[in-house]
Design a protein around this nucleic acid. Sequence first.
RNA 1: GGGGGUGUAGCUCAGUUGGUUAGAGCGCCUGCCUGUCACGCAGGAGGUCGCCGGUUCGAGCCCGGUCACUCCCGCCA
Length: 597
Amino acid sequence: MHKYRTHTCSEITKKDAGATVKLSGWIHRKRDHGNLLFFDLRDHFGLTQCVMENSNSFFKIAEKIKPESVVSVVGKVISRSSDSVNKDLFTGEVEVKISSFDILSESKDLPMPVFGEQDYPEETRLKYRFLDLRREEMHENIILRSKVISFIRNKMIDSGFLEFQTPILTASSPEGARDFLVPSRVHPGKFYALPQAPQQFKQMVMISGFDKYFQIAPCFRDEDGRADRSPGEHYQLDIEMAFVEQDDVFKIVEPLFFELFTKFGKGKEVSKNPFKRITYKDSMLKYGTDKPDLRNPIEIVDVTEIFKRDDVKLDIFKKVIQKGGIVRAIAAPNTSSKPRSFFDGYNNWAKEEGAKGLGYIILEKNKDKFVGKGPIGKFFSEDAINLLVKACKLNDKDSVFFSSDRINEVEKISGIVRQKLGKDLNLINNKKFEFCWITDYPMYQYDEKEKKIDFSHNPFSMPKTDIKNFDKVDPLSIFAYQYDLVCNGCEISSGAIRNHLPDLMYKVFSKVGYSKSEVNSKFEGMIKALSYGAPPHGGMAPGIDRIVMLLAEKENIREITLFPMNQNAQDLLMGAPSDLNEPQLKELNIKVIEKKK
RNA sequence: GGGGGUGUAGCUCAGUUGGUUAGAGCGCCUGCCUGUCACGCAGGAGGUCGCCGGUUCGAGCCCGGUCACUCCCGCCA
């Protein structure tokens, strides 16, 4: 007989009745009748009920042992009588009558029970992560994560991609997020950086002549956490392909996501290939965001022209327009019977979000004629109302909100109003995964704070413009071969066709104020590599954590991460970050400066 | 760095207008119990009400500060 088990805890059925089996696992739950003891034995696979009578020589020990202790038992499989079958359990038709009971590892009193579905404080869960992970839901989430990763890996290999590891200790890069730095012992005063992504390495792989690369790559960014963003580290499916255009990348990624989400998406409907393609500009107009939730049917409409009309007498909005502002409309289907508080609620909420507030019109039909009600309805002529109805595709019983301000503010607020309406009015179909590509990102944006032009995305992306005219055009009008993959309002990937031309690279960087020599020094390896024959190439890097969150229907990244840090970037289980002792610091030539309070 | 929320028993939470000795369920301990599967029954232990200060005759409750966790903004090419 095997030292620990002949079967797992989710294996024994009626067929095994009469057999003697050995099981090992955790004491999940005890039910002590004084002279008769039941306990559920749990392992990774499931539960088996064990039973013991007081005549058993192990009875006293078993009665005393605490839940979550690990034991090994030997016993005979007994068919349960029909009235004592537990239909909720795979092994519920049998139980094991214990003949031998061996304690492998005792548990102390628990800081949090494993049994049950109650919520526990995040702090306790992280501190005792190994207990939290024993719980069924967490256990399932982590298993799902593993399966997702193997599915992806198999699919990538089947599609002709090679999996490579790239360095974890590398050089700090001047663009992007804050780096995590590692001091060099050998080179006092110098530092390695952990990669924010293997961006430059994957391009080097292409330049090295490999055709298709992927990696489930750890990425390190020293930025603050959010519910859907771990501080410190996350994983990306890093992909890069040589001799490709944007569509070639899409054609590899679309079936991968369709199959992945169909297989692990709990029967939800997944967007068919090809996924919808929406330009950045259109997305900002129609959805007020570059990560639209397409399950929400509401589309934002620009109605600036209507508000300019003489038969619309709303001076506040007209003034905004005169100053270069715009007006956009967000329809709220079937809300005309909502109480005044509904509309005022939105208006107040928008102000809290930092907007100037929202106007609204409630639509009614009077003898086949649309009439605009609500505080500003009276400022619209019949013609103007009809134009609005047509532009926004409004129906009788709808109402419509208006936001008026500078374009950036309007886009922002209309996007969140649209999403709030979708949620509040129950317009979002939770049984769907709606994918789309957002394409044609602007290469540059104007940084209001720094008062200068900056990259809006990845500086290594190929600009969508003629290289000869690059210097002549307004940088803010230049688009890039830069795309995002979005699902249900969640950005799950960014990607691009890369700029493989050193001359163009200098020009691209010169627009944000980098001289040729600065580019040479800051991206020395990259520029060098591009100067000895680089294939046109491109790729993307979907976020593994986000994908698993969507599939597991979790809002919080810690629910699908084995050993996450808390929001303050601390590992409460291992105690990271931690102090170093003097000799360690000395060896690294590091002096800690006490922070003044 | 900024804003919001939370903090009462090991855990989940209640605690009225500021008023006697701060409660319940789960867990834990003791006893009883041979068919439970959230076993049951009886009893018991367990509290610096996050911490510091203030107001008050009196503070879990009000005020100021602070800490922790969390959510958001900034940040995340």
